[in-house]
Simulated assay, not measured.
Amino acid sequence: MRRPLWAVLAAFCAAGCTTAVPGTPVAVKRADGSEVVLSYFTALNDAGEQGADKQAEFLRRTQHPDFDDRVCDLDGLVLSMAPVADTLRPDPQWKPEKSADVPRGETFVIAVTVTIRQGTTTIGEQIGSQRVVLLDGEAYGFTPCPAS
């Protein structure tokens, strides 16, 4: 089932992918998480290169454990995220949509360009921000949910 482009893009807005982040981006040159956060995006993209099923498996496996009931079916879509390393910064007060609590761990926000593909066709591209949480040395994300 092919979703209209506006529905796919709306999903990323709802997932916090385009949430405005107050403040000025500051380059983070530190060894306490930046490599792990950037590796998360490499692994996400590598899984996507293997297909929608492999990427869905990756997203389920890396969904933050406090929010593992919020994993959505991307309906065959594949995401490619190109992070801008110099924009990585801590975001300790961020809460996922409809959540009263911040996630356990250290939350980072980073600017990304998201390319959305269905099969070999690019159906959308968007610039926004993405959150990754480091918890017990592992990187966890938040699977975007397509709008219905």
Rank of each mutant, 00 (worst) to 15 (best):
Y40A: 05
L38N: 09
V8P: 00
N45D: 15
D32Y: 07
D91K: 02
V114M: 07
P92S: 05
L88D: 01
G137A: 11
C17A: 15
R30A: 14
Y40I: 06
A111E: 13
V109K: 01
R3I: 08
D101E: 14
A11D: 03
D75H: 08
P144Y: 03
A47L: 07
E106A: 06
V109T: 14
E57V: 03
V26E: 14
Q55C: 12
A100G: 14
G76Y: 07
A147K: 04
V8Y: 00
K98H: 11
K95V: 05
A82H: 09
Q130A: 11
D69P: 01
Y40F: 15
A7D: 13
E138K: 14
R131H: 15
K95Y: 08
N45L: 13
T115S: 12
A14W: 09
K95E: 11
P146E: 10
V36E: 15
A147S: 11
R104W: 08
E57A: 14
I123S: 03
V21Y: 03
F58P: 01
D66E: 09
L44P: 02
G16W: 06
P146S: 13
S39E: 15
D46C: 07
A85I: 01
G48W: 01
R61G: 04
T42I: 08
P103V: 10
G23N: 05
I127T: 13
A14G: 12
D68Q: 12
L5P: 02
E125Q: 09
M81R: 13
P103C: 06
D32M: 04
N45Y: 11
T121V: 15
I123A: 05
T122D: 12
L74K: 02
T122Q: 13
P25W: 04
I110N: 01
R70L: 10
V133E: 02
D69E: 08
D101P: 01
L59M: 15
V28L: 12
G128F: 04
D68P: 02
M1E: 09
L79Y: 06
G141Y: 00
A139C: 12
G137N: 13
D68S: 14
Q55D: 10
E125Y: 00
Q55E: 14
G119N: 09
D46E: 15
S80I: 06
R89L: 05
T143S: 14
A27V: 15
G76E: 06
V8F: 01
R70W: 09
F142K: 00
F12N: 04
P96M: 09
A11I: 01
P4T: 11
T113S: 13
G33W: 00
K29Q: 08
R89E: 08
S39K: 15
C17I: 01
Y140V: 00
R30L: 09
V84K: 08
K95C: 12
R131N: 11
A85Q: 04
Y140W: 15
A7S: 14
T19G: 05
Q93I: 00
R30D: 14
K29R: 14
Q50I: 03
I127Y: 07
A139L: 11
R60E: 11
T107I: 03
V36Q: 12
F41E: 04
